[in-house]
Simulated scan of single mutants.
Amino acid sequence: MAPLLVTMILASCSSVPLTKSGTLKSYDQLGSVEGVLSKSRSFADSQVLLAAKTVSISPTRLSPQVYTKLRDEKNGELVANVLDRTLCIDLSDKFRVVSPEKGADLNIQAVITDIVPTQKVAAGVSEAVTLGSSVVLPVGVPRLPIGLGGLAVEAEAIDSNGTQRAAIIWSRGANSITNSPRISEIGDAYGLASSFSDQFAQLLSKGKKPQGLNLSIPSPQKLSSRLGGTPKYSACTAFGKGTGLAGAFGNLLGAPPSWTDKSAGL
């Protein structure tokens, strides 16, 4: 049953190439390509990562290519911000998060290297079909496998001496089974940004590549922060608060992320 489900998901995925974009200090230590839904190559200096106590997060940048893909520059900034916010919340379980100007054992910098825009018309039709079917069926039908978006990111953790201690290049396309349609050009990229942050946070916190799905129960601070509570560390407030129930309802109804995510500075 599981292999069949994976096959179905892969058959309904959009494709986002895993490429080197030149934003990392080095690509030399990256491992081979891994993953099924998400594709990635990564490197982790386990000894240094496990010994680190503090981290800082520099705001995620957008590559020039991303700006050519989006009609609204603010949409790209929204994707970058939710990536940073999720990463900050996730890392707060293990590390003390400080602002970049205060210095830390590790500084994290991510660059969104590509966004495949979601086709809003296709997303709208899919949402209408899904909501309509839920009225007469016990479960909604899968999303139409057209107009799906995607995301590609590169990120690294640099120590106080400027040495790369962890790095990853990552890409993932949305699929019609696990990714709900949102009527926005960043409808899929916005959700996938959190998926990237979860994976990179595991790499940094555990000092090694994540193995399979993360089925652990979220910590109280993580759950509270994602539901819109005050983050554990003040440095995380730079990325705004989690969207909470408003975000969940917005996702359910297919609303653009900008309707529910009122991030700081955006």
Rank of each mutant, 00 (worst) to 15 (best):
P218C: 15
A110L: 10
A238Q: 15
P138L: 09
S258N: 09
S176Y: 00
L49S: 04
P181I: 02
A2H: 10
L106K: 04
D72T: 07
V135T: 08
S12D: 04
T68R: 14
I115V: 12
D198W: 14
I89C: 03
V48F: 09
V125K: 06
L83I: 00
L24H: 00
R96E: 15
A248M: 13
S12Q: 05
A123L: 03
T54G: 02
T23S: 14
A235S: 12
L106M: 11
V153W: 01
V129G: 01
S194L: 01
G149N: 04
E34H: 08
P145F: 10
G22F: 05
A174K: 04
E156W: 02
S219C: 05
G173H: 06
Q119H: 15
I115F: 07
A44T: 10
T68G: 04
G187Y: 01
V97F: 03
A167E: 08
N161Y: 03
L106I: 12
Q65W: 10
V82Y: 09
A128K: 12
L50P: 00
T260E: 14
L252K: 08
L62W: 11
S258A: 14
R165S: 03
I57C: 01
I217D: 14
S263E: 13
V141T: 09
G244W: 12
S258T: 09
K222P: 00
P138M: 08
D114C: 02
S99Y: 00
S219Y: 03
G187S: 08
V16N: 00
R71C: 01
L227W: 11
T237H: 02
I112N: 11
L4P: 01
D159V: 05
T23Q: 06
N214H: 11
Q47L: 10
G247D: 09
